[in-house]
């Protein structure tokens, strides 16, 4: 399995990646563009996303895509392009943070489980099984229902936790199986018998060797998290007004404008699709490149 990577490390450069995985490279470029838009939203966006201008509302006869509003304006005359750009910030921050938390916690649980084995492993395994018996959306919605809404620095903590929790057991399971093969390697055994602490061994020796599957899952789950955030917001359970969110821009009432202002629902839908598409494309290629046999 992936121990192959450790046994005979290949020299890998970005150039190799571009050559071998052109689709993945396209994904990477798109991700970079989105990240720039997200980080520099205030500089890039022509308007503040919450600026209301009734004159530009399609309901008052305005809002067509024009030089003033490149992608048109929404019901409140808010600039769609600016909301998409700030929406990238919402999507990427929620996507990255939830995937990062989910994957990191999952990786720690997975390696711990593999390192200690025995009873601890068994208990953790059972807990993982338990959590895996819920569809992701169901688990996410339950978490949303349980926690009161908390918004810190414009980021909805509630949604992040709701998305991170269902990811954790999935990652833990994959990482555990990877870590199991490493735990039996002589140098880990040596570290163990040399009396190094568990924390040291796990962090120094096991975790670094599961970085490939970790990275692959991280990219894949960012895409999934963005999709999940959009779905939750569409249902009215995720990000709420006035925060710019792609899923929220697609919420039911906006489709009433489909004959008069189709841009209101076309562009946000495209934004979600392209974002998730890029992460999947990149994640897929990363897997093909790093560890083709990894099963998620």
């Amino acid at each position: 399995m992936s121990t192959m990577n450790i046994a005979k490390p290949k020299r890998r450069t970005v150039w190799d990646f571009i050559k071998q995985q052109p689709l993945g490279f396209i994904g990477l470029i798109l991700i970079l563009i989105m990240s720039i838009a997200a980080i520099f939203s205030p500089e890039v966006a022509p308007y503040h996303p919450e600026d209301v201008d009734f004159e530009a509302s399609p309901a008052l006869g305005g809002g067509q895509p024009s030089w003033d509003h490149l992608l048109g304006a929404d019901a409140f005359g808010r600039d769609i392009l600016s909301r998409l750009i700030y929406g990238a910030r919402t999507a990427l921050s929620i996507g990255f943070l939830s995937a990062f938390i989910g994957c990191t916690v999952g990786a720690i649980i997975g390696t711990t489980s593999a390192y200690f084995g025995g009873k601890i492993d068994l208990i953790i395994q059972r807990l993982i099984d338990l959590m895996l018996s819920f569809p992701i959306v169901v688990l996410a919605i339950v978490v949303i229902a349980v926690f009161p809404k908390t918004v810190v620095a414009g980021i909805d903590i509630n949604v992040i936790i709701a998305i991170a929790i269902p990811f954790t057991p999935k990652v833990a399971r994959v990482i555990r199986s990877q870590a199991l093969t490493i735990v039996t390697l002589p140098y880990v055994d040596a570290a163990k018998s040399a009396g190094f602490s568990a924390t040291r061994t796990i962090f120094r020796h096991i975790l670094p060797n599961v970085t490939a599957p970790y990275l692959i899952m991280l990219t894949a789950f960012i895409g999934q998290a963005i999709l999940l955030e959009a779905s939750l917001s569409y249902l009215g359970l995720g990000v709420v007004e006035p925060t710019p969110s792609w899923g929220l821009m697609l919420s039911g009432v906006n489709s009433d404008y489909y004959r008069t202002a189709a841009w209101m629902i076309i562009y946000p839908g495209l934004a979600v699709s392209i974002a998730v598409f890029s992460f999947n494309l990149f994640g897929d290629s990363l897997r093909d490149w790093l560890d083709p046999k990894l099963k998620l």
Binding site: G223, S231, S273
Partner: peptide, 18 residues
């Protein structure tokens, strides 16, 4: 591959609306 990666990228509720 592009079609299938697209399939897991397009939000199903958006597809439904369309």
């Amino acid at each position: 591959r592009i079609l299938t990666i697209g399939g897991i990228a397009v939000p199903s509720f958006w597809l439904g609306m369309l």
